[in-house]
Design a protein around this nucleic acid. Sequence first.
DNA 1: AAAAATAATTAAAACGTTTCGATATTCAAG
DNA 2: CTTGAATATCGAAACGTTTTAATTATTTTT
Lengths: 335, 335
Amino acid sequence: MTATIKDVAKKAGVSLSTVSLVLNNKTNLSPETINKVKQAISDLNYHPRHSARGLASKKSGNIGFILTDDHFSRAEPFYTKIFLGSEFEARNYNYYILLTTIEQNFCKKSIPRFLLEKNVDGVILAGHIPDGLINFLSNNYNIPVVYIDYLPPKGKSFAILIDNVDGAKLAVEHLLEKGHRDIAFVCGEISHPSMQSRFLGYKQALKNADIPLREELVVTDELATSDESGHNATCKLLKTGIHFSAIFAGNDAMAIGCMKCLKKKQISVPDQIAIVGFDDVDIANQIDPKLTTMRVDKEEMGAIAIKNLVEMITKEKRNFGKVLVPVELVTRNST
Amino acid sequence: MTATIKDVAKKAGVSLSTVSLVLNNKTNLSPETINKVKQAISDLNYHPRHSARGLASKKSGNIGFILTDDHFSRAEPFYTKIFLGSEFEARNYNYYILLTTIEQNFCKKSIPRFLLEKNVDGVILAGHIPDGLINFLSNNYNIPVVYIDYLPPKGKSFAILIDNVDGAKLAVEHLLEKGHRDIAFVCGEISHPSMQSRFLGYKQALKNADIPLREELVVTDELATSDESGHNATCKLLKTGIHFSAIFAGNDAMAIGCMKCLKKKQISVPDQIAIVGFDDVDIANQIDPKLTTMRVDKEEMGAIAIKNLVEMITKEKRNFGKVLVPVELVTRNST
DNA sequence: AAAAATAATTAAAACGTTTCGATATTCAAG
DNA sequence: CTTGAATATCGAAACGTTTTAATTATTTTT
């Protein structure tokens, strides 16, 4: 059958252990030996069996990737892209990724099998993860954990987050550069952490430009952060009769809602009112006019998570804190 | 640390082997023994270590999922959904899925690691897969393979395919029921197998309704199957001046292109011209008017693939042939 | 030149299962 | 009863690595 480490040892004229040492780049090996072994490995087209390694080393060589089902199946492939970024980066480090979705309402039944079977060396948790799982993990496992796009409410953790504050600031600064002074902020569900940060960025940008914050240009009382919320919020703003020449929307969905409302009222975008969104969802580029928005590199987020996770696994140390991933302005036709 | 099979054996008062037999549902076990062991397993919260199993049984417990990078990263999450469906179903059978993307231009360097490491018991190939990989697989491995949405050009294979012919027939029949008689078919890149099948379905539906095929209502000479191709094809049709009251487009992208053209020419959809697409992409439901189209259950396709693959793995047999997944009409506002 | 330190290599145990063949027990048929 | 088959359980080998400690070879120090 296929070659094993034994065959390599025989061919290279060394012991099993030596081959293993070469395989794992261990020290105290003579260059000749290393060459002999490497030659034999390539001659035999040898590849160490994954499960044998796992058994002996007590490392699985796998990384678990957990997100809630609603996050993955939603239309916008935000987490899909993050996952893909992780998969790519993991390959560079020779790790496999085991993906699993869990239900929002966590119960003991839904503990990912790769945890029970000790089949992962570390875990990535993407998006809003139920407390139950977080507690279960920290109580029963000692493997490193990296959060993506979610900061657990308590306890020390390591998280990869979107730099919402800075992104929002950039968005508003873009509008300021275009000469806008009366910039509205449209947002729903202000309780959401991202929305709060984006609001903060909006306020900071105004402050830096010496423009006072005008409460009447801020709508934060919509229930959701959807298309519809954006639509309603814009209608509300227009009804007040207060002048504004630009809108910064909390996300693209709302920005699109804004545009729908404006179109209905025959207000031209960007001539009469400019709009900036946030997220750069796929349709942002397909609507008319194309939406200027803030893009975050999702693949990069996944890659950063892997890099850090692998470091924690191999160096057996724990990182804590936040990594803020920068956001980039994508200028299109709505501004 | 965590319990092993040894602990279970001790606790249950039986031998290692017996526990293993229970674990694997083997025959010739007394009910009392089974109960004793199961009790011990649950008492100790025992879960067999994945790599140990893999090593001893020479089965990895993993399934490989391969697709080309361009397929996975494209905007429309077609293959993402298939993958998700696979992941869900695989969980039911206690398999892990290892996903990897490969480049379109295959080379030895890009052989998925899980193949080299003997770390999968079977493989799913989704979408257009380079011949090089197919040959490599069949020459070097004896593991079962299931294709999804792709039929390899030669050799025996087992594939899960969209029932394009039947779907197209349904689409056209829907238009016929709505009273349309002059139905155009708009399609680019007719060399593509799916497009050929859809064209075939179109012709069959007409034939069944005793309506002669009129070549002048068929556009198949566009270069791509994109939005733009649909747009151009429609313009071409309109220019001929020939009457038609409905369009069946080869896919949603083209259907959307058709609508754009009609909107430009102030032709109302569906009042003057009705449109049916194919695929049910996400934006089909977001445009105005919402697009009537044909939906295929992508998750189901993934699940079917897993079911068959697992059967082949466990029963050590090979299935051959095609499974055609039915397509469903989604009636919206464009008809 | 001997002793000590270091470098290079190896033997053997360990990892936690499955599986094969052996053994013990029960059952049915002669 | 005796024998042969079927049932139930077990002991031990095997799977292919890593890792620890031991051994041998080499270099450095005194």
